[in-house]
């Protein structure tokens, strides 16, 4: 009962802080870039995950969760695509508040977490089992730490921008990403494939969309006073 409460609390806080990051007040401007990320072709099927080896996690999921490397929505939309300003954005300062990453039900929440280089990152274990957090960093320093249930959060940060795959060595199906960026102008697509980068001053920007399986696509966008639009289309293959 108590655990459930804390789990619920943890989840709320997680979502709250994630929202907070996306909602970080931009330095200036009221312009924005919105759009949708979709695919053409047939994407690979997401596979159900058998968690039976970890019963305390398995019972948290009424229906088995699936792999999330190509998460799709209705209308060929793509979820968990990071869309961010890769050029033309100046003067982002690192916010004082950190971001929160949760391990709950043997799943990383959120699947893709964006943060600024140098921003504090707190990693929580909300489960009854030990987790192992292994960010497979290549540009930053790779590390690998275990977190027994009930231990304090791991407090850390990343110094350089990088898309870092995160895996749990104890539960091999647990996979997620840290998107460490040098801009706070970023949005992650939801199930409907939409994104919304707010708070842009008028000007010319390069926008990049990153999807873990398909890589990146960029386009140049000119932002005026209102909302500019940019759509991204990835080519999906069944295998």
């Amino acid at each position: 009962m108590r655990m459930k409460f804390f789990a619920a609390l943890g989840f709320t806080v997680a979502m709250g802080s994630a929202l907070m990051v996306f909602a970080t007040p931009p330095p200036a401007g009221s312009g924005s870039i919105t759009g949708k990320v979709t695919y053409t072709g047939t994407p690979m099927k997401m596979k159900p995950i058998d968690m039976s080896k970890e019963p305390s996690c398995a019972k948290q999921h009424a229906t088995p969760i699936t792999t999330e490397n190509v998460a799709t929505g209705q209308g060929n939309t793509l979820e968990w695509v990071v869309v961010y300003i890769s050029a033309g954005d100046e003067g982002t300062t690192t916010p004082s508040q950190g971001v929160r990453y949760d391990q709950k039900g043997c799943q990383y929440l959120p699947h893709v977490l964006t943060m600024l280089a140098g921003q504090q990152l707190q990693i929580y274990n909300d489960d009854q089992t030990s987790h192992n957090i292994h960010p497979l960093a290549k540009v930053n320093q790779e590390w690998n730490k275990s977190q027994p249930p009930g231990s304090p959060p791991i407090d850390t940060k990343w110094d350089k921008p990088e898309f870092i795959a995160v895996k749990c060595n104890i539960h091999p199906w647990m996979h997620g990403y840290f998107a460490v960026l040098k801009t706070s102008h970023v949005s992650v697509t939801g199930e409907d494939g939409t994104f919304d980068i707010k708070g842009l001053a008028p000007g010319k920007y390069t926008v990049t969309a990153w999807q873990e399986q398909y890589g990146t696509k960029t386009q140049d966008v000119t932002v005026g006073a209102g909302a500019a639009t940019a759509n991204f289309v990835f080519t999906a293959t069944p295998y």
């Binding site: 995950i49 039976s52 792999t67 895996k167 399986q213 069944p238």
Partner: peptide, 27 residues
């Protein structure tokens, strides 16, 4: 091999027809 996409065995369904219907489970 790619744990993230559930390809624990290292199958190559794109080029290997026999691999496409292989059933991979955790029990």
């Amino acid at each position: 091999i790619d744990d993230g996409s559930g390809n624990y065995f290292g199958l190559d369904p794109a080029n290997d027809v026999a691999a496409r219907d292989d059933v991979v489970v955790g029990s």
